[in-house]
Amino acid sequence: MILVSFEVNGTAVRVEVEPQDTLLDVLRQSLGLLGSKEGCAEGECGACTVLLDGLPVTACLVLAAKVEGCSVTTIEGVASMWKGEEGALHPVQEAFIDVGAVQCGYCIPGMIVSAVSLLERDPSPDEKTLRQALAGNFCRCTGYNKIFEAVRRAANRMGGDL
């Protein structure tokens, strides 16, 4: 057992982990944060994407023991990254709802985390940047078109154009 201290969605946590435990295991099993999904467990599908010190990572490939001192943001913490009203969603989340970018929803937590992270880095991404930023998040339902539309819409709203 290894004792690891880090921050999740702004709250300090201390958890005991096994050396082989992944961050995804710890988030889901020890911390009860079930929003991050497992789709492949090999870093390919993107369903488990979280922000680690502000950058998107696939939590299924991050060893929990390595996040000592880090700050982690999961889908549960995305809304509070945006200074909206109490209980308000992040504009990216809103936009996904508004344009109908959600179907089965399983890819969506990871997709939204990747999109939020993109817009933090580049508030008005061009088509290619947008595609590249989401290239690690597979969606089997939507064909991505509405997801792109949602991210563009969120970018506009966050930039004050909407």
Partner: peptide, 14 residues
Amino acid sequence: DIVRRPDARAKVTG
């Protein structure tokens, strides 16, 4: 834009 899926909110919040 009118019709929002009733299941969407739970899905975008995890």
